[in-house]
Protein backbone atom coordinates (compact mmCIF):
# COMPACT_ATOMS: atom_id res chain seq x y z
CA UNK A 1 0.00 0.00 0.00
CA UNK A 2 2.64 2.48 1.05
CA UNK A 3 4.92 1.57 -1.81
CA UNK A 4 2.07 2.12 -4.25
CA UNK A 5 1.20 5.53 -2.84
CA UNK A 6 4.80 6.62 -2.69
CA UNK A 7 5.37 5.34 -6.22
CA UNK A 8 2.36 7.24 -7.51
CA UNK A 9 3.45 10.40 -5.74
CA UNK A 10 6.91 10.09 -7.30
CA UNK A 11 5.22 9.62 -10.66
CA UNK A 12 3.10 12.73 -10.13
CA UNK A 13 6.19 14.77 -9.28
CA UNK A 14 8.10 13.41 -12.27
CA UNK A 15 5.21 14.22 -14.55
CA UNK A 16 4.81 17.79 -13.30
CA UNK A 17 8.53 18.29 -13.72
CA UNK A 18 8.86 16.88 -17.20
CA UNK A 19 5.59 17.93 -18.85
CA UNK A 20 6.91 21.43 -19.55
CA UNK A 21 10.18 20.12 -20.91
CA UNK A 22 8.49 17.75 -23.32
CA UNK A 23 6.07 20.47 -24.50
CA UNK A 24 8.92 22.85 -25.22
CA UNK A 25 10.80 20.15 -27.05
CA UNK A 26 7.74 19.25 -29.09
CA UNK A 27 7.33 22.87 -30.16
CA UNK A 28 10.71 23.82 -31.49
CA UNK A 29 12.96 20.86 -30.82
CA UNK A 30 14.59 22.87 -28.03
CA UNK A 31 16.29 20.90 -25.28
CA UNK A 32 15.86 23.33 -22.42
CA UNK A 33 18.67 22.63 -19.95
CA UNK A 34 17.46 25.59 -17.89
CA UNK A 35 14.26 23.71 -17.07
CA UNK A 36 15.66 22.88 -13.62
CA UNK A 37 16.33 26.56 -13.01
CA UNK A 38 12.68 27.39 -13.67
CA UNK A 39 11.80 24.65 -11.21
CA UNK A 40 14.01 26.37 -8.66
CA UNK A 41 12.50 29.75 -9.52
CA UNK A 42 9.05 28.29 -8.85
CA UNK A 43 10.08 26.97 -5.44
CA UNK A 44 11.53 30.34 -4.39
CA UNK A 45 8.55 32.15 -5.85
CA UNK A 46 6.26 29.84 -3.90
CA UNK A 47 8.22 30.53 -0.74
CA UNK A 48 7.88 34.27 -1.29
CA UNK A 49 4.12 34.07 -1.77
CA UNK A 50 3.67 31.89 1.32
CA UNK A 51 5.93 34.15 3.32
CA UNK A 52 3.96 37.26 2.36
CA UNK A 53 0.39 35.92 2.26
CA UNK A 54 0.53 32.67 4.20
CA UNK A 55 -1.32 30.83 1.45
CA UNK A 56 0.13 27.73 -0.17
CA UNK A 57 -2.73 27.71 -2.67
CA UNK A 58 -2.05 31.24 -3.80
CA UNK A 59 1.58 30.18 -4.32
CA UNK A 60 0.40 27.48 -6.71
CA UNK A 61 -1.24 30.20 -8.82
CA UNK A 62 1.34 32.98 -8.64
CA UNK A 63 4.61 31.01 -8.85
CA UNK A 64 3.79 29.50 -12.27
CA UNK A 65 2.77 32.93 -13.54
CA UNK A 66 6.15 34.26 -12.46
CA UNK A 67 7.91 31.33 -14.11
CA UNK A 68 5.97 31.94 -17.31
CA UNK A 69 6.82 35.64 -17.28
CA UNK A 70 10.54 34.90 -16.98
CA UNK A 71 10.05 32.28 -19.69
CA UNK A 72 8.68 34.94 -22.04
CA UNK A 73 11.74 37.09 -21.42
CA UNK A 74 14.14 34.21 -22.04
CA UNK A 75 12.37 33.15 -25.23
CA UNK A 76 12.12 36.67 -26.66
CA UNK A 77 15.59 37.87 -25.71
CA UNK A 78 17.75 34.77 -25.98
CA UNK A 79 16.12 32.05 -28.04
CA UNK A 80 14.27 34.00 -30.72
CA UNK A 81 17.42 35.46 -32.30
CA UNK A 82 18.83 31.97 -32.93
CA UNK A 83 15.85 30.01 -34.25
CA UNK A 84 17.35 30.00 -37.73
CA UNK A 85 20.67 28.54 -36.59
CA UNK A 86 21.60 24.94 -35.85
CA UNK A 87 19.35 23.37 -33.17
CA UNK A 88 22.21 22.89 -30.72
CA UNK A 89 22.69 26.65 -30.44
CA UNK A 90 19.38 27.00 -28.61
CA UNK A 91 20.43 24.28 -26.21
CA UNK A 92 23.74 26.06 -25.61
CA UNK A 93 21.95 29.29 -24.82
CA UNK A 94 19.96 27.53 -22.16
CA UNK A 95 23.29 26.66 -20.47
CA UNK A 96 23.94 30.38 -20.17
CA UNK A 97 20.40 30.99 -18.95
CA UNK A 98 21.01 28.54 -16.05
CA UNK A 99 23.83 30.70 -14.75
CA UNK A 100 21.88 33.93 -15.12
CA UNK A 101 18.75 32.60 -13.42
CA UNK A 102 20.73 31.14 -10.55
CA UNK A 103 22.48 34.45 -10.03
CA UNK A 104 19.15 36.25 -10.16
CA UNK A 105 17.61 34.01 -7.51
CA UNK A 106 20.68 34.46 -5.35
CA UNK A 107 20.54 38.22 -5.70
CA UNK A 108 16.88 38.33 -4.67
CA UNK A 109 16.68 35.65 -1.98
CA UNK A 110 20.26 35.21 -0.77
CA UNK A 111 22.08 32.03 0.10
CA UNK A 112 19.91 30.70 2.91
CA UNK A 113 17.72 27.67 2.65
CA UNK A 114 14.05 28.56 2.63
CA UNK A 115 11.48 26.76 4.71
CA UNK A 116 8.29 25.83 2.89
CA UNK A 117 5.84 23.71 4.86
CA UNK A 118 2.80 21.84 3.67
CA UNK A 119 -0.50 23.66 4.31
CA UNK A 120 -2.09 22.77 7.65
CA UNK A 121 -4.85 20.62 6.14
CA UNK A 122 -2.28 18.34 4.53
CA UNK A 123 0.36 18.40 7.24
CA UNK A 124 -0.76 15.43 9.32
CA UNK A 125 -0.52 11.87 8.04
CA UNK A 126 -3.70 9.91 7.39
CA UNK A 127 -4.51 6.26 7.90
CA UNK A 128 -5.57 4.30 4.85
CA UNK A 129 -6.30 0.57 5.16
CA UNK A 130 -4.15 0.27 8.24
CA UNK A 131 -1.16 2.07 6.75
CA UNK A 132 0.10 5.52 7.71
CA UNK A 133 0.46 7.60 4.60
CA UNK A 134 1.24 11.22 3.97
CA UNK A 135 -1.79 13.35 3.18
CA UNK A 136 0.41 15.66 1.19
CA UNK A 137 1.47 12.84 -1.11
CA UNK A 138 -2.16 11.87 -1.70
CA UNK A 139 -2.77 15.49 -2.68
CA UNK A 140 0.24 15.39 -5.03
CA UNK A 141 -1.11 12.30 -6.76
CA UNK A 142 -4.50 13.93 -7.31
CA UNK A 143 -2.89 17.19 -8.42
CA UNK A 144 -0.59 15.42 -10.89
CA UNK A 145 -3.47 13.43 -12.34
CA UNK A 146 -5.60 16.54 -12.69
CA UNK A 147 -2.81 18.43 -14.44
CA UNK A 148 -2.23 15.53 -16.82
CA UNK A 149 -5.92 15.39 -17.71
CA UNK A 150 -6.07 19.17 -18.15
CA UNK A 151 -3.02 19.27 -20.41
CA UNK A 152 -4.33 16.44 -22.47
CA UNK A 153 -7.72 18.06 -22.93
CA UNK A 154 -6.25 21.44 -23.85
CA UNK A 155 -3.86 20.04 -26.40
CA UNK A 156 -6.17 17.49 -27.98
CA UNK A 157 -9.62 19.03 -27.74
CA UNK A 158 -9.34 22.82 -28.00
CA UNK A 159 -8.55 25.11 -30.93
CA UNK A 160 -5.50 26.40 -29.06
CA UNK A 161 -4.19 22.86 -28.84
CA UNK A 162 -4.77 22.35 -32.53
CA UNK A 163 -2.79 25.47 -33.40
CA UNK A 164 0.06 24.43 -31.10
CA UNK A 165 0.24 20.97 -32.60
CA UNK A 166 0.04 22.31 -36.13
CA UNK A 167 2.72 24.92 -35.46
CA UNK A 168 5.10 22.28 -34.19
CA UNK A 169 4.42 19.93 -37.09
CA UNK A 170 4.60 22.45 -39.92
CA UNK A 171 5.36 26.04 -38.93
CA UNK A 172 5.50 27.30 -42.52
CA UNK A 173 2.02 26.07 -43.32
CA UNK A 174 0.61 27.54 -40.12
CA UNK A 175 2.29 30.83 -40.90
CA UNK A 176 0.74 30.76 -44.34
CA UNK A 177 -2.66 30.39 -42.67
CA UNK A 178 -2.09 33.75 -41.04
CA UNK A 179 -1.21 32.57 -37.55
CA UNK A 180 1.65 34.23 -35.72
CA UNK A 181 3.98 31.27 -35.18
CA UNK A 182 6.35 33.40 -33.15
CA UNK A 183 3.58 34.13 -30.69
CA UNK A 184 2.71 30.44 -30.47
CA UNK A 185 6.34 29.58 -29.77
CA UNK A 186 6.61 32.20 -27.05
CA UNK A 187 3.34 30.98 -25.58
CA UNK A 188 4.40 27.34 -25.49
CA UNK A 189 7.80 28.16 -24.03
CA UNK A 190 6.21 30.30 -21.33
CA UNK A 191 3.65 27.60 -20.62
CA UNK A 192 6.42 25.00 -20.28
CA UNK A 193 8.50 27.14 -17.94
CA UNK A 194 5.36 27.96 -15.97
CA UNK A 195 4.77 24.23 -15.51
CA UNK A 196 8.34 23.83 -14.26
CA UNK A 197 7.76 26.62 -11.76
CA UNK A 198 4.50 25.00 -10.69
CA UNK A 199 6.38 21.75 -10.05
CA UNK A 200 8.87 23.68 -7.95
CA UNK A 201 6.18 25.37 -5.89
CA UNK A 202 4.04 22.31 -5.29
CA UNK A 203 6.91 19.99 -4.28
CA UNK A 204 8.72 22.56 -2.13
CA UNK A 205 7.34 21.12 1.15
CA UNK A 206 9.17 17.85 0.42
CA UNK A 207 12.59 19.05 -0.70
CA UNK A 208 15.26 21.54 0.33
CA UNK A 209 14.67 24.91 -1.30
CA UNK A 210 18.17 26.05 -2.24
CA UNK A 211 20.21 27.35 -5.15
CA UNK A 212 21.44 23.99 -6.42
CA UNK A 213 18.03 22.31 -6.50
CA UNK A 214 17.63 22.63 -10.28
CA UNK A 215 20.77 20.69 -11.16
CA UNK A 216 19.67 17.35 -9.82
CA UNK A 217 16.20 17.28 -11.32
CA UNK A 218 17.11 18.09 -14.90
CA UNK A 219 18.54 14.63 -15.56
CA UNK A 220 15.43 13.03 -14.03
CA UNK A 221 13.38 15.10 -16.46
CA UNK A 222 15.37 13.83 -19.40
CA UNK A 223 14.85 10.24 -18.32
CA UNK A 224 11.06 10.69 -18.29
CA UNK A 225 10.92 12.72 -21.46
CA UNK A 226 13.05 10.33 -23.47
CA UNK A 227 11.37 7.17 -22.24
CA UNK A 228 7.98 8.71 -22.93
CA UNK A 229 9.02 9.93 -26.33
CA UNK A 230 10.25 13.50 -26.85
CA UNK A 231 7.33 15.87 -27.21
CA UNK A 232 4.62 13.48 -26.10
CA UNK A 233 2.39 14.31 -23.12
CA UNK A 234 0.78 10.89 -23.15
CA UNK A 235 4.23 9.34 -23.18
CA UNK A 236 5.33 11.55 -20.31
CA UNK A 237 2.38 10.33 -18.23
CA UNK A 238 3.18 6.70 -18.97
CA UNK A 239 6.90 7.13 -18.42
CA UNK A 240 6.36 8.97 -15.13
CA UNK A 241 4.16 6.16 -13.87
CA UNK A 242 6.63 3.50 -14.96
CA UNK A 243 9.60 5.29 -13.49
CA UNK A 244 7.84 6.36 -10.29
CA UNK A 245 6.69 2.86 -9.49
CA UNK A 246 9.99 1.24 -10.48
CA UNK A 247 11.82 3.72 -8.26
CA UNK A 248 9.53 3.16 -5.31
CA UNK A 249 10.10 -0.58 -5.70
CA UNK A 250 13.82 -0.04 -6.23
CA UNK A 251 14.24 2.08 -3.11
CA UNK A 252 12.72 -0.82 -1.23
CA UNK A 253 15.25 -3.38 -2.43
CA UNK A 254 18.48 -1.69 -3.43
CA UNK A 255 18.34 2.09 -2.96
CA UNK A 256 21.94 2.70 -3.97
CA UNK A 257 21.32 1.16 -7.41
CA UNK A 258 18.16 3.09 -8.29
CA UNK A 259 19.74 5.94 -10.23
CA UNK A 260 22.08 3.61 -12.03
CA UNK A 261 19.15 1.52 -13.19
CA UNK A 262 17.28 4.63 -14.35
CA UNK A 263 20.19 5.58 -16.59
CA UNK A 264 20.54 2.06 -17.94
CA UNK A 265 16.85 2.12 -18.80
CA UNK A 266 17.29 5.50 -20.45
CA UNK A 267 20.18 4.28 -22.59
CA UNK A 268 18.38 1.10 -23.54
CA UNK A 269 15.27 2.99 -24.60
CA UNK A 270 17.27 5.50 -26.62
CA UNK A 271 19.11 2.75 -28.44
CA UNK A 272 16.23 0.41 -29.05
CA UNK A 273 13.28 2.79 -29.36
CA UNK A 274 14.66 6.31 -29.78
CA UNK A 275 11.14 7.71 -30.11
CA UNK A 276 10.28 6.43 -26.67
CA UNK A 277 8.51 3.40 -25.31
CA UNK A 278 5.11 4.94 -25.87
CA UNK A 279 5.42 7.12 -28.95
CA UNK A 280 5.55 6.03 -32.56
CA UNK A 281 6.59 9.27 -34.16
CA UNK A 282 7.74 12.56 -32.84
CA UNK A 283 4.61 14.59 -32.32
CA UNK A 284 2.97 16.72 -29.73
CA UNK A 285 0.37 15.31 -27.32
Amino acid sequence: MNILIIGLSLAAMLFLLSAGLTLIFGMGGIINFAHGSFYMLGAYGGFQVIDSTGSFWLALVLAPLGGAAVGVLVERLALRPVYNREPFVQMLLTFGVILILEEGVRAVWGLDYKDVSAPAVLAAPVHVLGATVSAFRLFLIAFGAAMAALLFLVLEKTPVGTVVRAASADPEMVRALGIDVGLVRTGVFAFGTGLAALAGAVTAPLFPVELGMGFGVIIDCFVVVVIGGLGSIKGAVAASLLLGLVRAGGYGFAPEWVDLLSYCLLIAVLLLRPHGLFGRQRRLA
Binding site: A78, L93, F95, G96, V97, I98, L99, I100, E102, E103, G104, R106, A107
Partner: peptide
Protein backbone atom coordinates in the same frame (compact mmCIF):
# COMPACT_ATOMS: atom_id res chain seq x y z
CA UNK B 1 30.71 36.33 -11.60
CA UNK B 2 28.64 33.26 -12.35
CA UNK B 3 25.76 35.31 -13.70
CA UNK B 4 28.14 37.57 -15.62
CA UNK B 5 29.78 34.57 -17.24
CA UNK B 6 26.35 33.33 -18.29
CA UNK B 7 25.52 36.75 -19.72
CA UNK B 8 28.77 36.97 -21.69
CA UNK B 9 28.21 33.49 -23.03
CA UNK B 10 24.64 34.21 -24.12
Amino acid sequence: WYGLLGLVFV
